[in-house]
Simulated assay, not measured.
Amino acid sequence: MLSAAPGLAASSARLDAPAAATSSLADEVPGSGTLAQAMPFVGTTPPAGAVAKPQPLGTTAPGAAKPPAGDPHTILPQPPVGKAAIGMSARFGEKEPLVPRGLVWRVFADHPEASGAYPLVAEAAEPAPVFFLSPGGYVVHVSYGLASVARRIVVGEESRREQVIIPAGGVRLQADVLDKPIAAQKVEFDIFEGSFLQGRASSRPFFRGANPGDLIVLPAGDYYVVSTYGEGNAVIQADLQVAPGKVTEATLHHRAAEMTFRLVSAAGGDALPETQWSVLSPGGDAIKESINAQPTFALAEGEYTAVARQDGKTYTKDFIVEAGKNGPVEVLVGEQAAPPSINADEGSGD
């Protein structure tokens, strides 16, 4: 299992498929890129003074229950006349720690306006806010990264505490080749719900374009990660499990290399300009194409054919990619003849 974010615990491991470890999410803060990007409710701006920070001084409201063990609201502040103080907090699970930071709270009326929108009554970006609410029904929505929970509450005359469970975990990903980290700008990750190995994976990414080292906070559950290294076919998948309150740190191991292609008149010579390149699989399928004098592709280990087209002629060369062995692929003008399936009409280039 892979695993931490603000408040998450962590561990780590490797996958070759990946390796993963986990730690506490409660000790980390998720980056802004992990915040939920949409809300199920819309409405008006909350009135000023609708949210109050928990105060260390004050008296418990008459009739209010004592806080449960682990509740951050030891004492609730005295609410304005006609309102009740509702102390909110969240934890990762029934037996998991409190979420210490990174939460976004929104309180909506539980009945829509004529437009169909649910009015926004109050909001806060604190781990344990206190909302001063008039008697009535509300929907409290809290988000943590890409995980969120909504709860309907009914407020009476008495102040009280409410605690929600938000089963979220974190993922932090890295990639390497033969234990050498891949530069961050050359690799990215897409995260899908489900299991690639068990054939029950979503076809649409839950989170797209994660960078190495980013902390992505997700609802707890099963996911699989697609790691794309450079431009080419260096793509691998790995299953991960996200546990509540934990951060999974995983390294995906690519078996690939970066190959730079050059069409030259003599070995070691300058690359000829205006060259069109294709890289073919042993079966003749095109893997990558480019119009560049010296393109570089990250290719999974295996056998390939390089095809160079320049000045109306076509040249080819077979080559082998070995993991971690970056290097040039030089195609010499006049020494490699294109097979008929590639360019029968243009000749060999000799």
Rank of each mutant, 00 (worst) to 15 (best):
I165R: 11
P167Y: 02
P167T: 06
A168Q: 06
V171C: 02
V171F: 07
V171W: 01
R172G: 10
Q174F: 14
A175G: 14
D176N: 15
D176I: 01
V177L: 08
V177Y: 06
A183W: 03
A184S: 14
V187K: 08
F189A: 10
D190G: 07
I191V: 15
I191E: 11
G194H: 12
S195G: 10
S195P: 12
S195Y: 10
F196Y: 15
L197Y: 06
S203R: 12
P205T: 05
P205A: 15
R208K: 14
R208I: 04
G209D: 06
A210V: 05
N211Q: 15
N211W: 04
N211R: 15
G213E: 07
D214M: 07
D214P: 01
L215A: 07
V217Y: 00
V217C: 07
L218M: 08
L218H: 03
P219F: 09
A220T: 12
G221H: 11
Y223P: 03
Y223C: 07
Y224A: 03
V225S: 10
Y229Q: 11
G230T: 07
G230M: 10
G230Q: 11
G232C: 09
G232W: 10
N233C: 03
N233S: 08
A234H: 11
V235F: 04
I236D: 10
Q237P: 01
L240I: 15
Q241C: 00
Q241R: 13
Q241F: 02
V242E: 05
P244W: 02
P244A: 11
V247K: 02
V247S: 12
T248R: 08
E249W: 00
E249C: 01
E249S: 13
A250L: 13
A250E: 11
T251Q: 12
L252N: 00
L252C: 00
L252G: 07
L252M: 13
H253W: 02
H254W: 03
R255I: 00
A257T: 05
E258C: 00
E258F: 14
F261A: 05
F261K: 07
L263G: 06
V264N: 11
V264P: 03
V264E: 09
A266C: 00
A267V: 08
G268C: 11
D270E: 14
D270I: 01
D270R: 12
A271G: 15
L272D: 04
P273N: 08
P273F: 11
E274Q: 14
Q276M: 03
Q276H: 09
S281C: 01
S281F: 06
P282T: 03
P282V: 11
G283F: 04
G283H: 05
G283Y: 02
G284R: 02
I287W: 08
K288I: 07
